[in-house]
Each structure stands twice: as structure tokens, then as C-alpha cells.
Design a protein around this nucleic acid. Structure first.
Lengths: 116, 116
DNA sequence: TCCGATTGTTACGGAGGCGTTATAGTCTTA
DNA sequence: TAAGACTATAACGCCTCCGTAACAATCGGA
């Protein structure tokens, strides 16, 4: 086990980071969308619609729609699985990687500024 | 300065917590809604529509609508400011406090479980 | 007292997400 | 090879949110 945080600090961190994301104003993602994006970029590939749906405990159309949205923003791409043409493999993009990386920087910065 | 976090840890934390929130399945709040809720519960009162709009860098109707939604869920209440009847004072509720508290616990727990 | 400024809300048409259900394409196996 | 299982997506009606603009209520100063 690793990062030691008091509840008040945890909430202050969450507040500060989401505030930054909102103020930035580029997007207003839901928790589902954020989770999908981070799962794709943090967990081991390959990622499929079915896999994500099971992991997040939501229906498959929810994943499809989120991928449509993120795909339109070029944060994510899809291609058919050559081994099993029923599957769709979800892939990362440069733009998505930059977005996630930036998000990590924001969290780190806000954690550092946290009063104690 | 306080909490020391590497970018990979920060993102993993964010992922784990949002995943918990999504899996729970009770709500699917946007970043805006989360930020509004946390601001009300973490920052010093009084909170007004105008004040929140300015702080989050969004328009006032956005705040009004978010308060409508959160109010319907009993996470927040409003009353008129007696000193200046143009203002609306946004107030906390027991249910809202519990929700935020639970969220803090989730973050703390996930931070503790973070592999290092 | 009135008139401009300020506050929060409502109205509007549009965009996007929801859950459910139906569908097309692909695999598997009997 | 034919039937059934499985994958992802499309279609449906509903609901919520969006930004802009108009609005009613209230305040404060000339």
C-alpha cells in the first residue's frame, strides 16, 4: 500500500483537479467517459466493447456511444480484430495520450499544492 | 506542499476511484456537477449562483440547472438571501454531506491500495 | 422616486446520452 | 453445412443538458 491521504485532503484534491478540468472548458465528460478513457490508456490492451462493458458494469451500447464521442474527438480509435472479426479492438491515439498525460500532470500539481 | 504523487500513480488513482463511482451505478455526474458539489461542501459559505458561475468559469444557467438536478436528489438546497433578496444562498444537506463523505472514503481507500 | 445595474430563473431549439430492443455480421460446433 | 451463440452497432422514444436570449424581482444611487 502506498499513498497516504486523509479524507479532507482527498476531497480537496478531487475538488481542485475537477475545478481545473472544468475551468479549462474544453470538454465536460461524465464519470463513465473518464473511466473508459483512463481504462483504455492505463490497462493492458487489448480492449473490447464487451470487456469494457463488463468491467464498468454498464451495457454495451453505453460503451459504443462513448467510443463514438471520444472517437469524434480523436481521443480513441477502433479497428476490427483480425483474429475474430466480431470483436472491435479499441486503440489509443496521440491526442488521447496527450490528454491523459496532461490530466496526470494536473493531478500531480494539485496534490503538491495541497495544504496540510 | 504536501502529497507526493507520480503521474502514473495519479492517473491510476483517478481511474480506480471513477471506476468505483461508475460501478456503484447510482449516478453519472459530469465534471461540472462534481465540481459544484465539492465546492459547496468544501469551501467556505455562503455560496451563490453568481459566485459559483464565476469560479467555475461557466454561465449562470449551468449552475441553476445543476442545482435543480442536485436539489431533486436532495444533495443541495437553496434559499433566498434575507439581506439581499436577489441572491440565492446554496446550502448543504445531510444526504449531500454523506455522499461527499463517502466519496472521500473511496479516494482514501483507493490511494491506500495503490501499488507502488 | 425612478432608472440602470444586478441576480437568478425560464424559454427556446438543438445536441447528445439513456435503456431497451432489434439487427447484421461472425464464429463454433454438432 | 446449418443452427445457435456471440459481437458490436443501429433504432427507438425519452430525458437532460447545452448556449443564448429574454425575463421578473430586487437593489442602489442620482
Amino acid at each position: 500500500m502506498s499513498v497516504s491521504l486523509r479524507p479532507s485532503e482527498a476531497l480537496a484534491l478531487w475538488h481542485d483537479v475537477t475545478l481545473d478540468l472544468v475551468r479549462d472548458g474544453s470538454h465536460d465528460f461524465s464519470s463513465r467517459q473518464i473511466t473508459i478513457l483512463l481504462t483504455i490508456y492505463l490497462e493492458q490492451p487489448p480492449h473490447t466493447v464487451r470487456g469494457l462493458a463488463a468491467k464498468l458494469n454498464v451495457t454495451k451500447p453505453v460503451i459504443t456511444r462513448a467510443l463514438d464521442t471520444m472517437g469524434a474527438l480523436d481521443l480513441v480509435t477502433r479497428r476490427r480484430d483480425e483474429k475474430d472479426m466480431r470483436n472491435v479492438i479499441i486503440q489509443r491515439t496521440v491526442k488521447g495520450a496527450l490528454f491523459v498525460e496532461k490530466m496526470g500532470d494536473v493531478i500531480v500539481a494539485r496534490a503538491k499544492e495541497l495544504p496540510r
